[in-house]
Write a protein that binds this DNA or RNA. Structure first.
Lengths: 352, 352
DNA sequence: TATTTTTTGAGACACGTGCCTCAAAATCTG
DNA sequence: CAGATTTTGAGGCACGTGTCTCAAAAAATA
């Protein structure tokens, strides 16, 4: 057994270097370098020979050594909205953590808060960046033409760009976040399953319905309820606009208007305000309440039974995944292979 | 703003090297090397001065350069049981994937199948390993004194050892896997929540109850049911021992003995056999069925409604996490900081 | 064939750290 | 104080790749 293996691996170097490549292809190290780094002035024939040698030897470029030679280190920026809820605070905290986790890999992350609602300031910031200052940007911003443009121009300047949490378009290959439509559907399924033997109305509370993310969640939620739980009836979204007084008013109004509310879906990533209001309003004990995103507040609410479930995306996972993805882009790992998908997490009291 | 920052960072080098350290501490690079790598023959006073300089400059050792100098590369082995179910196949596939994901980091993984049930063969294999062949091992094996011993001896030989999925002891700091007690409780909560308005018996099917993992799951499950869903009654575990005929017999017997079965919990990581048997037995449509681990089979069952929920640990995540953890141990990252916890995932039809 | 152009090779240096040797300096011991 | 011992410094080579320069070889063109 061991003999057979050694016979196979005998001529196959364990970790072939560019030197070995050169020898195998019958060219010089300079030429190998030209091929590896896509410089021109090499005949196709020669390129092929080198590529064949790469295949034959199973050569893998030593990125560490390469980075050392280039004295490359990675400087990433997380461009996040200024107006922040608890979920955003969570993200910020995870970035700080990731910073010293990745320090050993020569990766350094900064945070830049941008004024959302103003697409111009976002794209302005993005175009102010230059390679040398920063090697990559993770961008959390609502989808607008300006932002899309700015992202394109970043890539032209050889800066890695990665839509983060807020998706820019369904077709975009490089992005880190969850499918909001499925997230909404998951909230619906969880709610519906728990209320399977009852019928009534479901209140839906949002911060605003303008963003693509909100729309998708709502769509997914409604679709799941209507196809699988026809005994439940979903009410129109209540939009709080982040305003507590307004929230109090519309929630109270809805509760008096409908006396058959059996479930509540808090759709926005900031669940604190609506939940605090609901608590004061003395709902029946068996009203099923579900919200998005894990924050110290929602976590607590789940523990104490004020909330029955959370549909979440893991902030730490999002951050780390974004960093690894950015590094992958910079390293030009095209065959990034198994994409590390961000899962839609369901949190109950038992798996916090 | 920028001025203030630059004033601060002016004297602070962006990426100080050992050379900078030496200058700052007023010693030679040789001495810095002695301190950094814990060689002796350095006066305490000098050690302190170097450490102070490390603090002051915010020095972070360039692991890439260090690995290059040592021509260190990481060879990890996953020691997995021989007798495998679909979940194990999943793990194996993820290891293969991870292999080319981590190739750029000079990490190479092998798989070694060990005969479970025979603690001696496991520890025999582990003691046959030597540094140079392998830098770290992820071990999936039931807890026995022999295995614990072998792990200790691995560490003495400077080989990183990491219990994998099967925990060795609750107190063990270094391990990758989930809390099985919480996993069981989560299955219970999901089941209970869906059956909140009904009462009856819950069938529990296991492969065997000898391992710590099974015990913990069952314990967590029972505790959650009895404290929060007293209208449900959990039956004793049916042990299939991986034998299809036996499984058919005991499941059928249980179904005739109890006519009030409202839920079924398939506890073992191999859910296929029990579920196939159950399908033939024509259960009422609203029987809530829950199982563990995502495999092509369980996934399909969930999609087609033969299963209502899966409590899972993400195989890819487990594998990647184990690899990163092993690398962390080898690199001597003591302040490993934010441990990348493996989440207990709840999979429903909507978030597959 | 002679000349220009393209392609290739040889060699050097750099990146930051590990690891080695040998000598010099500092400290301790008798 | 001399000698033994411990501590420190200076310097060099290695790791694998990137990036230069300059010359040589090969191919294309006139």
């Amino acid at each position: 057994m061991t003999e057979m293996q050694s016979r196979v691996t005998q001529r196959t170097l364990l970790h072939p270097t560019t030197k070995d490549l050169a020898r195998a292809a019958g060219v010089s190290r300079a030429t190998v370098d030209r091929v590896l780094n896509g410089r021109d002035g090499v005949r196709q024939n020669t390129v092929d020979r080198v590529n064949k040698a790469i295949q034959d030897l199973g050569f893998v470029r030593n990125v560490q050594a390469a980075n050392l030679a280039k004295s490359q280190s990675y400087r990433f920026v997380f461009a996040l909205p200024k107006s922040g809820d608890l979920f955003l605070e969570e993200i910020v905290a995870r970035i700080a953590e990731a910073n010293d986790l990745f320090a050993a890999d020569r990766i350094w992350c900064d945070i830049h808060r941008i004024d959302d609602n103003d697409p111009h300031s976002i794209s302005g910031y993005l175009s102010s960046l230059s390679r040398g200052d920063v090697t990559g940007v993770a961008i959390m911003a609502p989808e607008t033409p300006q932002v899309r443009d700015a992202i394109m121009r970043l890539q032209e300047r050889d800066i890695a760009a990665l839509p983060f949490i807020s998706n820019q378009a369904p077709l975009n290959a490089d992005w880190v976040g969850v499918d909001n439509s499925s997230a909404g559907a998951t909230a619906a399924l969880l709610l519906g399953q728990s209320l399977r033997d009852r019928s009534g109305s479901v209140m839906v509370i949002a911060e605003s319905m303008t963003s693509r993310d909100s729309m998708e969640r709502r769509l997914g939620f409604d679709q799941e309820i209507s196809t699988h739980f026809p005994r439940l009836h979903t009410l129109p979204s209540l939009e709080t606009y982040g305003n507590t007084e307004r929230a109090e008013k519309i929630i109270a109004a809805t509760l008096t208007a409908y006396d058959d509310i059996v479930g509540i879906y808090v759709m926005s990533s900031e669940a604190r305000v609506p939940l605090e209001i609901l608590e004061d309003l003395q709902l029946p004990n068996d009203t099923f309440k579900i919200a998005h995103e894990r924050t110290p507040f929602t976590e607590n609410a789940l523990r104490s039974g004020k909330l029955d479930g959370i549909v979440a995306q893991d902030a730490g996972h999002l951050v780390r995944s974004a960093i690894r993805r950015l590094k992958g882009i910079v390293d030009k790992r095209r065959s990034s292979g198994p994409q590390e998908r961000i899962r839609i997490e369901i949190l109950l009291r038992t798996n916090l």
